[in-house]
């Protein structure tokens, strides 16, 4: 579903290596949690996967399509929820979803069916025809999610998706992520919230200073610590790397 082979990113201006020889392979039906401290390279990795920035070296394949060779086709398989707000906040929720559906070439009948289901699920019906600028942070995140799922992407990528969501919406999002994977799709998301990763992920990867320092199931990471928690695993591994 998603394959990164020896991917690196060096920012030309600073010369710093934000991501260093990263390789990972995400299977169908899998939820992958991407963990790491601030500045570890999580967002850079996600930006490379979504085609926003270009890797300095390495290969990224989405559903078997090399994103550098055929970016439009690769991106068609991705639904991306960024960590920043929707910038088109003068559009209404409906207009934003219409825009996303048009860009992804969703059939109007399918679009209607999916948006009805998602809008009702996130309880956004009352605000759907209001401008996004009037939405709360959580509502903006919800409309962001609806826009990203309107084309039922094979790979759903989320950058810090739980930020600003109320417990009910966070629960709804987690359920949606699981259901998405149960249909044979995959989810790749970054988070700081280790409990979310612990409960939700089939596999996690820990990145620090641009390098993937650990990867495996939550149990495998826990096994590397004395008290058997993901938090200890995370802290031990990143501290070892820092030394």
């Amino acid at each position: 579903m998603l394959k990164l082979t020896d991917v690196s990113k060096v920012y030309a201006k600073s010369g710093s290596k934000a991501v260093d020889g990263l390789s990972l392979d995400l299977k169908s039906g899998e939820i992958y949690g991407f963990l790491g401290p601030n500045g570890a390279g999580k967002t850079t990795t996600i930006k490379m996967i979504t085609g926003i920035i270009t890797p300095t070296q390495g290969k990224i394949e989405v559903c078997g399509v090399d994103i550098s060779r055929d970016p439009e086709e690769a991106k068609r398989n991705i639904g991306y929820v960024s960590d920043s707000h929707i910038v088109y906040d003068k559009l209404t929720g409906r207009e934003y979803v219409d825009f996303m559906a048009t860009v992804y070439g969703v059939d109007p009948a399918d679009k209607r069916k999916r948006e009805e289901a998602l809008v009702s699920r996130f309880r956004l019906a009352d605000a759907y025809d209001s401008q996004i600028s009037a939405y709360s942070h959580g509502m903006k995140q919800k409309i962001n999610v609806i826009g990203a799922l309107i084309h039922e992407p094979a790979l759903w990528i989320l950058d810090e998706p739980m930020t600003g969501l109320d417990p009910e919406s966070a629960h709804e999002l987690k359920t949606l992520m699981r259901e998405h994977c149960d249909k044979g799709n995959s989810v790749f998301f970054s988070t700081h919230v280790l409990e979310v990763a612990e409960k939700l992920c089939d596999r996690v990867g820990i990145i620090n200073k641009g390098r993937l320092i650990a990867e495996g199931t939550v149990e495998e990471i826990r096994g590397k610590t004395t008290d058997g928690s993901l938090e200890s695993g995370f802290l031990t591994l990143t501290e070892e790397e820092d030394r």
Binding site: T50, G51, I52, E72, K75, R76, Y80, S82, S84, V103
Partner: peptide, 13 residues
Amino acid sequence: SKDNEILLALPVK
């Protein structure tokens, strides 16, 4: 433009 990032992530040439 602030929307450069989102537009680059979409399947639009």
